[in-house]
Design a protein around this nucleic acid. Structure first.
Lengths: 157, 157
DNA sequence: GGTAACTTGTTACGATATAACATGTCAAGA
DNA sequence: TCTTGACATGTTATATCGTAACAAGTTACC
């Protein structure tokens, strides 16, 4: 099975990613404040997509504000900084697993267990850009979200 | 400029598409009832993505029900039948411009004027499938939505 | 013309998201 | 140091998007 989907110790990948995130924020002069950091941790620990209200609920039990903007602002910040991604299809957010690497990922969403994997899609993106250019469309960003079964659920079925 | 983006007589493309839709529904034994047909017309006339509540408002002024489920049910039906598409990014719906042709389109969304074009993406999809298969992921459906500037707005800028 | 499947309408509510404003915090320069 | 401006957080209120559940009407078909 590809490592993307292998079960593993989430606390490790969370720690690594968190360290990289902090380094990046320092480098950029952006502030990874307590709420923001905690939201990032929450996403990293979950290791799947969480809705803004899921995140909010956890924040609230930890003494942070319990109103929607608290969660949305932190999430928006993380997305802007490339530390998290928004999954349109799920109205949900997920931690970026490749912080710092310039990437424009596609998401593979398992319809059974809801895990979300970031897939490398350089060839996909190149094809999309070629198509857009052929139509005279100036492509800026694209979201690519695939639905299907992850290897684990595929095997179980 | 590519025909996809050329200005043209919408009433024509609406008429053609509507005729094809009716034929297809007959063939399938599905019923293109008055509400459903009207919703399809509304989408075809708009020629851009409309929110469910936009559609609902128009329906209401024409004597149909004015509660959300009326619009959502018709829209869901059209999407299921492949007569319309849902644009996740906009929480909106758009008429399918290639009814009957088997297709799995990408959408090119202009961030300036909100027009939505369906682009042919056989190569993009092939690349995506190859990537997914490489990860052991069983791809079923995918939504590809690109943001950028359409030729018209690009020229204006 | 009875009946089962489907369609529409309505009420009520749940889920997702943002505007606007008050308060608090921090860092840099006077 | 103290002021000041930029940024961050908290809160109220509300906007926007979407669906569950049930009643009533319609259609196809035996």
């Amino acid at each position: 099975m590809h490592p993307t989907f292998q079960s593993h110790d989430h606390s490790h990948c969370a720690g690594d990613n968190l360290a990289r995130a902090e380094a990046l924020m320092t480098e950029r002069g952006a502030r990874l404040t307590p709420v923001r950091k905690r939201v990032l941790e929450i996403l990293l620990e979950a290791h799947r997509a969480l809705g803004a209200y899921d995140v909010l609920q956890r924040l609230a039990t930890e003494g942070f504000g319990n109103q929607p903007p608290v969660a949305y602002r932190a999430l928006d910040f993380l997305v802007e900084q490339g530390l998290a991604h928004r999954i349109q299809r799920l109205n949900a957010f997920t931690a970026c697993m490749h912080v710092g690497e310039s990437h424009a990922p596609a998401f593979l969403i398992c319809r059974k267990c809801d895990t979300v994997a970031e897939a490398p899609v350089a060839p996909v993106r190149a094809a999309l850009e070629a198509t857009a250019e052929g139509l005279g469309f100036a492509l800026e960003r694209a979201s690519i979200e695939a639905i299907g079964l992850c290897p684990n659920c595929r095997e179980a079925a």
